[in-house]
């Protein structure tokens, strides 16, 4: 493979990885926007989404097959289920803590994450579950370059979801309300906006995007396990910070940048793939030191 081919191959891998990061990062950034909470459990919504998607796929595969058609339906079901899970968790765990000290709500979020992880551990026995599908390995060959159909479908689905979200947030009434709530909750209440409802919708959308990413990642990589949300949660957070936390286009951009950085960075000789995760955290710390507001974030530095 020439340098040129290898460059494009890494570009494609980076885009696929980046789509997953971006979808998960969106949930972080949206929840942060409305209630200023880092939802540690967000990565576990991705994990739960993968498991629900897997279960849903085995239900619908009889009628629709286990190809992309079936996976899409399973993905939509997983999005609904995890969206509702997100709303329920917000109601039970986060809502009573909104006026408590920040430390309390952070620890609560951590507790929710541990509960989800260990519930999945108890249910699956900690084994990898094979996410078997019929999506095949077909693809195009362009010169020495190989692009699989799956990669195209994944990136396209992620793009459609993100465009729909962007349109929803910028054009609809709920989107406007969401942006208003992220600026000033008290003022929103005075203007007659149902703040609790907006928070619930935000949680629903954020969690369902994570579930979409989880189902697609399960189908793409072929196996799922209870701990899969931990690392991607951290990485998606990094992506959200790179893009500027609270900014929706920022989360998309940050996800893609992180995916590409990882894909290229770990293919340089001196950073072996065993250092991949250290590499990501190093980026996170560097961004926080030199540009804590991220690429597209607001310039005010919030203190707490």
């Amino acid at each position: 493979m020439s340098f040129f081919d290898s460059f494009f191959q890494q570009l494609i891998n980076g885009l696929v990885l980046g789509s997953f990061y971006a979808l998960v990062a969106l949930g972080y950034t949206m929840v942060f926007g409305v209630i200023k909470l880092l939802n540690f459990a967000h990565g576990d919504f991705y994990m739960a989404g993968a498991f629900v998607g897997f279960g849903a796929l085995s239900l619908v595969s009889g009628a629709l097959g286990a190809g992309w058609m079936g996976i899409f339906v399973a993905m939509l079901l997983a999005m609904m289920a995890i969206g509702c899970l997100g709303v329920v968790i917000e109601r039970i765990a986060y809502h009573p803590m909104l006026n408590a000290p920040r430390l309390s709500i952070l620890i609560t979020a951590l507790a929710v994450s541990l509960v989800l992880q260990n519930a999945a551990l108890a249910l699956t026995g900690g084994q990898y579950t094979a996410f078997s599908t019929d999506i095949g390995f077909g693809g195009f060959e362009v010169g020495n370059l190989f692009i699989s159909h799956n990669q195209i479908i994944l990136v396209a689905t992620a793009a459609v979801l993100m465009i729909a979200l962007e349109l929803g947030v910028s054009r609809t009434m709920y989107g406007r309300a969401m942006r208003a709530v992220s600026i000033d909750k008290d003022m929103c209440r005075m203007m007659g906006i149902n703040v609790a409802g907006v928070i619930a919708v935000t949680f629903f959308i954020g969690s369902s995007l994570a579930a979409a990413a989880g189902t697609m990642a399960g189908a793409y990589y072929g196996s799922i396990w209870y701990f899969m949300g931990f690392l991607i949660g951290l990485k998606a957070f990094t992506a959200a910070v790179i893009g500027g936390i609270g900014s929706i286009p920022g989360a998309m951009l940050g996800g893609l940048i992180l995916g590409l950085l990882e894909s290229f960075g770990t293919n340089i000789e001196f950073i072996g793939s065993e250092w991949k995760d250290v590499f990501t955290f190093a980026i996170l710390i560097l961004v926080l030191v030199f540009k804590p507001t991220g690429l597209l974030g607001k310039s005010e530095v919030e203190r707490m």
Partner: peptide, 10 residues
Amino acid sequence: RLRSDYLAIV
């Protein structure tokens, strides 16, 4: 220097 949430995740 940053928000305490950042410290938690870092």
